[in-house]
Design a protein around this nucleic acid. Sequence first.
DNA 1: TACGAATATATCGGTTTCCGATATATCTGA
DNA 2: TCAGATATATCGGAAACCGATATATTCGTA
Lengths: 122, 122
Amino acid sequence: MLNLKQDHSTLVVLSVLADGPSYGYAISKAIASRSEGHFQLTPSGMYPLLTKLEKQGLVTTSWEEVKAEGADPDANGRKRKWYTLSAKGHKQLARHIEAHRQMQALIDVFVSPAEHGGATPT
Amino acid sequence: MLNLKQDHSTLVVLSVLADGPSYGYAISKAIASRSEGHFQLTPSGMYPLLTKLEKQGLVTTSWEEVKAEGADPDANGRKRKWYTLSAKGHKQLARHIEAHRQMQALIDVFVSPAEHGGATPT
DNA sequence: TACGAATATATCGGTTTCCGATATATCTGA
DNA sequence: TCAGATATATCGGAAACCGATATATTCGTA
């Protein structure tokens, strides 16, 4: 169960939200599920990140009251904070993915067994 | 010019040392060169990392006195600290590469446009 | 021979990130 | 009734980050 660092957390959360609006708890479940239990984003990683994304204008938010079945209409139900990817968020996700791919390619130069430092034979 | 985080720094430095012993300054130049100027590992990133690798037993070290041509044999020349990848370091590099590939594959699940959540059609 | 740039190693310290523990409250199922 | 799941959020010590700084040698060149 790997904890994600901010860069990867951002990429993964934006990516989940690209499929449609969601809320913190559901996002964390989606991440665990899609990664088949390999990734984990705990509350202390999730909520500060979502707040940051909101401040950056990458997501918009709204509260939803989740009432229990047959509950007193005056009672306070559980609250859900929904996050929706904004247009800016979509663009940022595309940029993040591009940056991620470039980083991957660059790291591969060091990690893959291909020769380096010499000219490629023709 | 991207600064590397510790995970990537470790991978890249061990990878450079896998080609043979080197020293801090040369390693930083090799990283800049092989990444075609995209990666940078500054002294404040490089030396604490090398010290850590040494403490972990992943590298062994030795000092070399670099005397100027025709210099006074008694004079203090510039010093170079050589780093050599140990057997343990080689194993650790292999583990790091494996972990990196797994992380890549996992992130791709979120980043690649393939469908998810449903069964793959046969 | 004077001087700037390159070579070479290393630490300092303020800012940011990380993440386990904690807090609070509702809802579901046995 | 009560444990476990749902749901959001902060706290605070530890670790990481990285620009600035320190120190000294060597090379190129004007």
